[in-house]
Design a binder for these strands. Structure first.
Ligand SMILES: [Zn+2]
Ligand SMILES: [Zn+2]
Ligand SMILES: [Zn+2]
Ligand SMILES: [Zn+2]
Lengths: 159, 159
DNA sequence: CATCCAGTGATAATCATTATCAGATTGTAT
DNA sequence: ATACAATCTGATAATGATTATCACTGGATG
């Protein structure tokens, strides 16, 4: 934790930005909720618990700054809000997501998976890939099981 | 053109929706600008040229409806507006996009490219893929050429 | 005809995000 | 320490996209 804060601090300093208390509080919230996909509002409410004096605008500004520095990636799952996702240590690219259309859960995929596809895109389309966004929409493991058990219940009930 | 309108008409009827004049005008605009990625506002302005009496709300409603019927796909390139992209005839999945971070141009990729990746996701993550969104961010062919020629100009100018 | 109801247009309301601006904080030169 | 400039912050207003509301229309049904 402290280690990662230090790295981010250095990254900020390298562009002559400071790690102010507000920025640090925001980063801590992101680190503590790394598995989630928080909106700016979500982050704001969580930061407020520790640093009640912080303003919403500052949270937006901080997230924007972290986004420029590639500390976080901004992503949109189509529900009208931007979400902010910490980039894993040393990750070259943004990771992928599995969004369940039944329960709304979001799972992460760390593996790159796109190496071959990017080669094709570079070779065949002459497009120099810098980053990507890949999201799959479908049915998660849990919802699949529920569908199966619901079906067998119906069957035994001779519906 | 008429052929595709007919198919969409049937698709609407199959869910007991009607192809009203407003809806038809909207669909025609989408067909005539298939290569673009229009926002709701864009569509509204274009439809107004032919059917000046149409209201913005109706355009939003129509796009939402077409989206549910999978006639169009709603996509967000991160610029704060939703864009609507006609699904190609008979296409199983949404197509992919190449967004240039220099000039903002958007190129399309019809080829699926993700068959293998989806197999992995289904096998290894147990996730049943229904659809996907894949966007590459990078430098398009044109901007690459410009960068090269700019560099050689500098060189010959002994900058 | 009377009734019903999906669909429509105008416009108000909502909600996320951005802009503004005065005050606080920091670093630095004197 | 004092003065000064630059950065940063919080409150709040403004913006802009999208959604909700509501009265009205036109076609279908009996
Ligand atoms: Zn699920
Ligand atoms: Zn994620
Ligand atoms: Zn370009
Ligand atoms: Zn497209």
């Amino acid at each position: 934790m402290e280690h990662r804060i230090d790295r981010i601090k250095k990254q900020l300093h390298s562009q002559s930005y400071k790690l102010t208390p507000q920025r640090e509080a925001t980063v801590r919230v992101l680190l503590e909720n790394e598995e989630d996909h928080l909106s700016a509002e979500d982050v704001y409410l969580l930061v407020k618990e520790k640093a009640p004096e912080i303003g919403l605008a500052t949270v937006y500004r901080t997230l924007e700054l972290l986004s420029e520095l590639k500390v976080v990636d901004k992503i949109n799952f189509g529900d009208g809000v931007s979400r902010y996702d910490l980039r894993k240590e040393g990750a070259e690219h943004f990771h992928h997501h599995l969004v369940c259309i039944e329960c709304g859960s979001v799972e992460e995929i760390e593996e790159d998976l796109l190496t071959d596809v990017e080669k094709i895109v570079e070779g065949q389309w002459g497009f120099e890939v810098k980053d990507h966004r890949l999201t799959f929409h479908g049915i998660c493991r849990v919802c699949q099981k529920q569908a199966v058990s619901a079906a067998s219940t119906n069957e035994s009930g001779k519906e």
